[in-house]
Design a protein around this nucleic acid. Sequence first.
DNA 1: GACATCACG
DNA 2: GACGTACGTGATGTCC
Length: 934
Amino acid sequence: MSKTEFGKGCHLHLIDGSAFIFRAYHALPPLTRKSDGLPIGAVSGFCNMLQRYVEGNHGPDAPTHVAVIFDKGSHTFRNDMYDLYKANREAMPEDLRPQMPLTREATHAFNIACEEKEGYEADDIIATLAVQARAAGGRCTIISSDKDLMQLVGDGVEMYDAMKNKRIDRDGVFEKFGVFPERVVDVQALAGDSVDNVPGAPGIGIKTAALLINEYGDLESLLDRAEEIKQPKRRQTLVDKRDQIELSKRLVQLDEKTPLDFTLEDLEVRDPDPDKLLAFLAEMEFRTLTKRIADQLGAEAPTITDKVAPEAEAVTVEDIPFDATKYECVRDAVALLKWVDQIREHGWVAVDTETTGLNEMIVDLVGISLCVRAGTACYIPLTHRDGSADDLFGSDELAEGQMPLNEALDILKPVLEDPAILKIGQNMKYDSKIFKRYGVSVAPIDDTMLMSSAMHAGEHGHGMDTLSDRYLNHTPIPIKPLLGSGKSAITFDKVPIDEATAYAAEDADITLRLWQHFKPQLHRAQVTTVYETLERPLVPVLAEMEMHGIKVDREVLSRMSNAFAQKMAGLEAEIHELSGETFNVGSPAQLGEILFEKMGLEGGKKGKTGKYSTGADILEDLATEHELPRRVLDWRQLSKLKSTYTDALQTHINPDTGRVHTSYSITGATTGRLASTDPNLQNIPVRTEEGRRIREAFIPEPGNVLLSLDYSQIELRILAHIAGIDALKQAFADGLDIHAMTASEMFDVPLDEMTSDIRRQAKAINFGVIYGISGFGLARNLRIPRSEAQGFIDRYFERFPGIRTYMDDTVAFAKEHGYVQTLFGRKIHTPEMSSKGPRAGFAKRAAINAPIQGTAADVIRRAMIQMPAAIAHLPARMLLQVHDELLFEVPADHVDETIDVARCVMEGASDPAVKLDVKLTVDAGQGANWAEAH
DNA sequence: GACATCACG
DNA sequence: GACGTACGTGATGTCC
């Protein structure tokens, strides 16, 4: 094999292997190999990091040479100089030790050079190679954030912090040390390092060290001229501890002449051997990663055994009992700092906030609970009020024994924002919005609610009580007795601190246990990708949209409310006149009596409660013969618009922001769709002219416009792809009117002779197909005889036989597996599939619909997740999502650019995970309000 | 709190 | 052969 000589134009990547391993070990729960219980969490994380590294290595700056460098053994030449070097290092965790050789194997499996040398630290090898690369005229990037390596930066050598996605150059080093790389060892020699047990000069930290070095030029001059230092204590230290400081310098100085038995040329980038790589991953039983890499390499994924070692399963059972009396109430900084230490030790923490209500945009923070391992949790009360005080104003006084809110946040903020510490929550969107309002940006996160949704959508809800009952066999302390109900209900800040501690700390304890239960299961359920690409990344995106809100013009709504009230009064009088008595028009029961008893109209009883049904479709039929039903329909429309929209929306305008802030439920819909609440901004009227005008109240800030981009026929396009209907695909490719095309195919009418009525019928059929069509349903929708509707359906299946195959296959799959899947791997469980009677029909249709609706939901989720970065350079904001539509607010002079970018993201949202046979098309609209934009 | 009704995709 | 149905949501008002 001929090797390219390393030289100008070459780019060497050096990966700090030990850093990768420790980061992987602390970021993941203690995973074990299913078949024999071998600990493999760190190996798994390590492989994922390598994989992500390889994936990201394309483009102009790709490396030509690469190696992963490891530490070997614990005794190095530095121990010979100073026997206490790294003496206070904790022993390697028991479950990490057996994983060390596996990480080397993993590196070989990826066909990346893997180097280590007895007696030397990885840092020395890295230093030697970096210097060699520089000398040969090439460049070098050290993938690590270790400050000990910063002395190497400069002149073609850079560092890259993969975690923070940040390059570190000479300026970056200066930021960290206050000196440029060539003086870093001098500063380190003075400042010492408690982690590595480098003594340094007592009482001198990095800041002081940099100051001294910058003043005297370098360490040697400083020590020689130490007598000139003005501060007596500092002078004394430098004089007395000269030997210790010089030793420290030798300890931190990297050895750039490590003898190596390989050359730079040996590190040339090589493609992995698919067989070897996949065999290793399969041996580790990494199901998701094996499959993903197999797909990428175009190779077949090896099968992975499903057998479970009996002893391996037994140890996973959680035996620690819940005990609310063991929870700690943290009342001062000293106690809190102990918790911070524990959090840093573990690398993760379960967090829960207690607040004065449920609206994150309004409520106040009352307390915070933390948990680092099952049974070990605390509550930090912060703003509890003293309700027990006798004087009248007692309830406004802060209760005794709480640390100041700001002090607690100052201590917790670095932890909550630390990229190396995982914050675990149940519905973290809520807590991160609360924290955000107090200036804390929580990241990175895991969310047990989203994990449950990824694994169990369709099986049950994902609230904490449900999950705890189901998976921990423990019923949480109910909140009701603490807060009371009705008029006498209190807010959490009025709950006595001891009761609050038991309740709040338990929530964090439960959350941590759920996480430990769920995290290893994500892999087994094959939904890690769903969780990591479609669920978790949505949290910050939605949090930002919700907090930003949308401006609503109260005046417009108020005027409409008045107009509606007037019209309703008129209609009500007419209705009473026509019926001959005054009654509550809003009562379906009273209306039914009048229509079907007093007036004797046709259209009998229905409903389980024995009441007459007076739904819009029934009244619509009656309206052809009588005036009263029409009036009632009109009244109902106005009543709906007024109560649900023009009145209610006003109450949702936030007094501080003047905007309306909805809340999206990520797990609300089983299919993966979002749901919008408080208020629901996904059902603002649009279908009728009067209703549509409500959208005129949704407006941009002055100088801005509202921008609406929506997917055209996304569900039908996805159906065409999934069911493989060539005629439909072709029609979309040709940009045809899809409903007209369907009508033409079905009724043999040429497109140029199409009538709106025939097209309308075809449209109903197309939608019916998406919903799991039935003759009855179509008949009712089109108001045609059932036999005729059945004829349409038969004909449709004749013309598009692929549709029937899709439906049959989907139902069969659901029956066999108990779930169906979207194109992106989201699973929707169908537990009702095995039931008998009418429920089976529902389950069937839901199973047919779920992959279509769910895939469309996945697509727009992907677009939303990409959007913030895509529009970061623009002054545009994403405000709302309405299933297939995204609404933006943008200054008028950036409209076209925003449309281009957002459309590009939306139309390409399925790439590269899924290659659709059908192009996705996005329509755009803009205007001075939502009615104009849509 | 169940139910009916109706707003959206 | 009868059953009793379009899929997915949330908010409101009535009535018990």
